[in-house]
Design a protein around this nucleic acid. Structure first.
Lengths: 206, 206
DNA sequence: TAAAAATACTGAACACTGTTCATTTTGTCA
DNA sequence: TGACAAAATGAACAGTGTTCAGTATTTTTA
């Protein structure tokens, strides 16, 4: 045998080629300026071919969204050995911010874009999203256990933490932080994040 | 005279008709599904006519964005007489969240959408945005003055506060809060916001 | 009031978009 | 080599934002 296997492999390679080419064009020119025809011609295939591998454009975007979450999750794992939960949480935030700034298209797909196919994130199992969220939640739980956070609503605290960092980076990505000089933005993001964290830390511990 | 004045008034009325019709369609069908032809036909004019009053589609969106900020600013003013700064800030947040949930299209235009024309928010004077931001900043300043917040970086604290509420509502608007049951979302938003505020308040005051 | 000038509006046309599908090309097996 | 299956094509469809020569309407002038 082996022929069916090769066929499967070819098919996966073709899908990968489409995804890679799409991502390349998206990062170069932004989502708005990339058409199916452009992707096809960059690949040196005809437009119709893409539809033999993906149902439509949304499915390409959704698949890139999954890839993005994989990449981000592996970034998250870098903090797993930090012992102090608050130090870990702050580093968690820094990694989040850096990822968003270095991969704005990925970040857009993960947390901002609302193409039709993305209602999946709402009703069905948004596996990749939940994995990342759960890991953040466990970090927040550790902060409660260590006495850094007061109260018992871990869910609310996790949503708050996530919202804080998502808020900062998404406002920046969408050009809504004109009140901050460009070369000061990254620093301000850390300061804003720490404004809440450091304060809580100081007051509760010790 | 009076004829030039009437012409001006007619022109303003026509612009208003276009904006009203656009908003109506946007709220009914979402941004993605509304075309210039649709707007024109709803108004019972030809597509070309719209271009005599607006340079392009982006300019319509940007104008609606300005209208949205006016509406939001008048909401903000409702808290101006609250004496306790922290109580005021929390109410500020509640108003922000309610506005976003009741006017998702407006909110999208104000803080999420990135049509071409919206780079104005970046480089030029984003007047409406600054007005709203400055008012929030003054509220945060009051919290420092009253001893609710520790430190002196008012800018970082304001960005943090804004990011927190923007983060919550924008994740929800873009269907990324699947981990929260729909009927619990509004409550969770308040709890998340208060997680940071109430904690700081408790610790710093008395 | 009639002709001339200015203004307002139209809708066909252009260059694009995502998507479909009959037709052609390529690959596999007997 | 011929028969069948699989893969790729690209023209066509219905839609998009935008432009602009031509038509209709309104205002000004004679």
């Amino acid at each position: 045998m082996g022929i069916k296997e090769r066929k499967d492999r070819d098919r996966e390679e073709m899908k990968k080629l489409i995804l890679d080419t799409s991502l390349k064009l998206f990062t170069e020119e932004g989502f708005g300026k990339v058409s199916m025809r452009k992707i096809a011609s960059k690949m040196e295939y005809s437009p119709g071919t893409i539809y033999l591998y993906f149902k439509n454009k949304d499915e390409i975007l959704y698949e890139l969204h999954n890839i993005a979450f994989d990449k981000f999750y592996s970034e998250q794992m870098k903090i797993k050995d930090i012992e102090d939960p608050m130090e870990k949480l702050i580093k968690h935030g820094e990694i989040y911010i850096d990822f968003a700034l270095k991969n704005t298209e990925y970040y857009d797909l993960m947390f901002i874009m609302n193409a039709t196919g993305f209602e999946i994130a709402k009703k069905e199992e948004w596996k990749v999203g939940f994995r990342t969220f759960d890991y953040l939640k466990s970090n927040v739980q550790e902060c409660f256990d260590a006495g850094y956070f007061k109260g018992d609503d871990v869910m609310a605290a996790t949503i708050a933490t996530w919202s804080l960092v998502h808020g900062i980076v998404s406002l920046y990505i969408r050009n809504r932080l004109a009140m901050i000089p460009e070369n000061y933005v990254r620093h301000m993001m850390s300061e804003s994040m720490k404004f809440f964290f450091e304060n809580l830390k100081k007051q509760n511990k010790k």
